[in-house]
Design a protein around this nucleic acid. Structure first.
Lengths: 212, 212
DNA sequence: TTGCATCCTGACCGTATGGTCAGCTTTCAG
DNA sequence: CTGAAAGCTGACCATACGGTCAGGATGCAA
């Protein structure tokens, strides 16, 4: 058991423990929901005694809040693709790529987000009414401009956004169902690529923005 | 308080109470998740003492199982539209209509289903590996035939199905988010119609199956 | 080396929850 | 009318969970 546990600096300790706890919490909250999650389970997964969790996060609610806020950041960051784009083909393609990458690499986060929203967003309500609304309105404006410039068909921008969110997040939130229908195996690299291509193709064609 | 509680027949009592419990349970499970749901809460909502719940459903798990199975039935019934159709335009339109109607009228059920799948389908795994798989394979066959007959573009049938599920269920599962972005108001009749039309239009155009 | 702030944790506590049960009331077949 | 089956329920129990705390260990600045 010759651990290479060389003495850590205080800063590092704090950072690493918080990181471990948040990671474990994300997984447990994703798998069991807020109500089903246990501080004990999270502690075990993080490899720390339960009391240590309460040293870093006073309450279960506070820990949950941190997890959810983390996820919200990531969610919003996927937006950048949208802004830099010159047209729907670039913009929506990049956004689908980004969101599918999140679904693949960060499925637990996606599930926690979904769970939070499904339960009425008790924690995120403020963010949804401010940040998310602003983000959405901005993107709606961009899409509207694309329509005005004749770069795509006149599709309702909001419903288009919902469609993008739904189709991409589905691969994380309903990943278990997809795996089951895939013979119990998780999607291969190729299948993920096919999924992305299919979504892009159907949506881009569907809004009349298919490239030449 | 002159209740018109005329004496009930045993059968009726059983049926009505089970129905009330299942309805209340569906709502509470949807709002709080399995772990967050309380037998007490369900009992209160159903207007019955908690002990009475255990008379009809021995355990919380059993009650949950009943709720989930109910939902699965409804989910599968929306499939009929698909079979009777002669082509993708009819079939997919009808399926979208049916699933959107479920999302609108039965959002709690949809949420419980989503929650169940997100948590790894502890209850539904068997159904998913048998009934759901068969249903899906059948629909994949139908779509493949449509493609062979040149009625739509060669889109991967599975990913198309996932897209249909995702986009329609999104309006139930993420209803709170949609409402928030809609100024805190639930969607109007007109908005629901627009949502449906948008989805149909984008997907049918996207798979090259737009009617003349 | 010393003193202090940070970090850690086993043991403990109050409460909420799922579940039980004894005994009551109501329905209804015979 | 009667007795048994079905339906009902307040009171109770064991457990599990979130959270606390006293006191020990550890890093670190001076």
């Amino acid at each position: 058991m010759a651990e290479t546990t060389r003495p850590m600096r205080r800063q590092d300790i704090r950072r690493e423990n918080e990181k471990a706890i948040l990671l474990a919490a994300e997984k447990v909250f994703a798998e069991a929901g807020f109500g089903g999650a246990t501080m004990q389970l999270i502690a075990d997964l993080a490899g720390l005694p339960k009391a240590n969790l309460h040293y870093y996060f006073a309450t279960k609610e506070e820990l949950y809040r941190s997890v959810v806020q983390n996820i919200f950041e990531i969610w919003l960051q996927a937006a950048n693709c949208f802004d830099a784009a010159r047209g729907p083909v670039d913009g929506i393609s990049a956004y689908i790529d980004a969101k599918m990458e999140i679904s693949r690499r960060h499925p637990d986060g996606s599930k926690v987000w979904a769970s939070e929203v499904m339960h009425g967003a008790p924690v995120l309500q403020d963010y949804m009414e401010s940040t998310l609304r602003e983000w959405t309105d901005g993107r709606v404006e961009i899409i509207r401009r694309w329509i005005d410039e004749g770069k795509m068909d006149p599709v309702d921008p909001r419903h288009l956004l919902y469609m993008l969110w739904a189709t991409t997040q589905h691969y994380a939130d309903f990943g278990h169902q997809i795996e089951t229908l895939n013979g119990g195996k998780s999607l291969s690299d190729r299948q993920w690529r096919e999924a992305k291509e299919n979504i892009k193709r159907v949506i881009l064609t569907g809004i009349g923005a298919q490239p030449a």
